[in-house]
Simulated assay, not measured.
Amino acid sequence: MGREKLLCGADVHDVGDKTLKNDIFDVIKTDLEAFEAELAASVVSETPLITDVGEHLVSSGGKRLRPALFLLVAHGGAAFDRARAMPIAIALELIHTASLVHDDVIDEADTRRGAETTNAKWGNQVAILSGDYLFARAFKLVAEGNYDAEVYSKLADLVGTLSEGEILQDHTAYQVPESQNVYYERIRKKTADFLRICCELGGMIGGMSSADTERMALYGHAIGMAFQITDDLLDYRQTSEDIGKPAGHDLAQGFVTLPAIRALEVLDEPQRVELTALITNPKMTEDEVTRALAIVRTTDGLDYAQEQADIYLERAKEALPESLAAEIRETCLMAADFIGRREF
């Protein structure tokens, strides 16, 4: 599979044994088209530089997975209203984008999605303040929507949890986690809680029952865990051209993820000592990163991580409520399959 986009045009996606023509989220195609236009409008400022930065960020692509899941789940309820749902969809993407901008500054990243990062193009100060601007725009959009207090509370919790995840990741950089549970906690805060809240808010805004909303939240959490495990796998499996950032980038940044954690559990003593020395060294050279990747690939670390992602995806599918309309259920299943087999 090439670098097809998740949410565009007539690309062909291989998902397991199924070939999908067009968009996985075709059932909400009209909503996503409206979303793109409103997202672009949301970053326009009276200050030209801020508009330029905002346009650079929202035009650089991305899977739009978070707003797509939110809109999809909202469609699964009996009270879907696009006008009421759209500000939250945009806010979710702006929060996600803002977190990536700050993340790129912390990581000193030069590229993301194959494009120049904001910090590389305009410097760290503009990048950090641009992220802050996107957070502010997100909450202003929601504040103008007159939603229930629970909506605001969940979005605030989301930003807090994202920050906790980044702090935890930074604090544990170049350290071997004490257990896999430490890794799972980190990816829950970084990714899974975000997708859980997207699905939960979708159920609430769409008018689902409390029970069905909770099941969709479980679905979101499970695919979020699988998404991050799969993302971490790409650091070992793919090339810079495939994933839009340097291969082994996460490892070089000190992020010890599930493939390496598993490798350390099964390697013999000499190789375990060598790998530990490599991945805990903040001054790893490119050759040392390559060597660390090679050691992990000699073990079942990649296959093990894929198996754990698949377990989460099965949990996601089992969580789907029986009341979902057939087309919504099928799209949820296809999204899960895509996440499990994506190559970018």
Rank of each mutant, 00 (worst) to 15 (best):
Gly131Tyr: 06
Asp132Ile: 00
Asp132Ala: 03
Asp132Tyr: 01
Asp132Thr: 01
Tyr133Leu: 01
Tyr133Asn: 08
Tyr133Asp: 13
Leu134Ala: 15
Phe135Gly: 06
Phe135Glu: 12
Phe135Val: 05
Phe135Thr: 04
Phe135Gln: 05
Ala136Ser: 10
Ala136Asn: 05
Ala136Glu: 02
Arg137Leu: 05
Ala138Phe: 05
Ala138Thr: 03
Phe139Lys: 00
Phe139Glu: 04
Lys140Met: 08
Leu141Thr: 11
Leu141Ile: 07
Leu141Pro: 04
Val142Cys: 09
Val142Ile: 08
Val142Ala: 09
Val142Arg: 00
Ala143Lys: 05
Glu144Cys: 02
Gly145Ala: 10
Gly145Val: 10
Tyr147Cys: 12
Asp148Phe: 05
Asp148Gln: 09
Asp148Ser: 11
Asp148His: 06
Ala149His: 01
Glu150Lys: 09
Glu150Phe: 02
Glu150Ala: 11
Tyr152Ser: 12
Tyr152Gly: 07
Tyr152His: 10
Lys154Ile: 05
Lys154Arg: 14
Leu155Pro: 08
Leu155Ile: 11
Ala156Leu: 13
Ala156Trp: 04
Asp157Gln: 12
Leu158Trp: 02
Leu158Thr: 14
Gly160Val: 05
Thr161Arg: 15
Leu162Ala: 12
Leu162Phe: 10
Ser163Phe: 08
Ser163Lys: 04
Ser163Asn: 11
Ser163Arg: 01
Glu166Met: 11
Leu168Pro: 05
Gln169Asn: 07
Gln169Met: 13
Gln169Ile: 05
Asp170Lys: 10
His171Ser: 15
His171Asp: 13
His171Asn: 14
Thr172Gln: 10
Thr172Ile: 08
Ala173Thr: 06
Tyr174Asn: 08
Gln175Asp: 05
Val176Gln: 12
Val176Lys: 02
Pro177Phe: 05
Pro177Ser: 15
Pro177Gln: 04
Pro177Ile: 12
Glu178Pro: 01
Glu178Asn: 15
Ser179Gln: 03
Ser179Thr: 03
Asn181Phe: 02
Tyr183Gly: 01
Tyr183Gln: 09
Arg186Pro: 00
Arg186Gln: 07
Ile187Met: 03
Ile187Lys: 01
Lys189Gly: 02
Lys189Glu: 08
Lys189Ser: 02
Lys190Thr: 02
Thr191Ile: 03
Ala192Asn: 00
Phe194His: 11
Leu195Pro: 03
Arg196Leu: 00
Cys199Trp: 06
Gly202Gln: 01
Gly202Trp: 03
Gly203Trp: 01
Met204Pro: 07
Met204Asp: 09
Gly207Pro: 02
Gly207Ala: 10
Met208Ser: 04
Met208Leu: 15
Ser209Arg: 01
Ser210Ala: 13
Ala211Arg: 11
Ala211Thr: 13
Asp212Trp: 11
Arg215Met: 12
Arg215Phe: 09
Arg215Ala: 11
Met216Tyr: 10
Ala217Gly: 15
Leu218Ala: 14
Leu218Lys: 09
Tyr219Leu: 04
Gly220Pro: 03
His221Lys: 14
Ala222Lys: 03
Ala222Asn: 09
Ala222Cys: 15
Ile223Ala: 11
Met225Asp: 01
Ala226Cys: 00
Ala226Gly: 07
Ala226Phe: 00
Phe227Asp: 00
Gln228Val: 10
Ile229Met: 13
Ile229Leu: 09
Ile229Lys: 02
Ile229Asn: 09
Thr230Arg: 14
Thr230Gln: 15
Asp232Glu: 03
Asp232Val: 07
Asp232Ile: 06
Asp232Phe: 12
Leu233Gln: 10
Leu233Ile: 13
Leu234Glu: 05
Asp235Thr: 10
Arg237Met: 14
Arg237Gly: 10
Glu241Cys: 07
Glu241Ser: 06
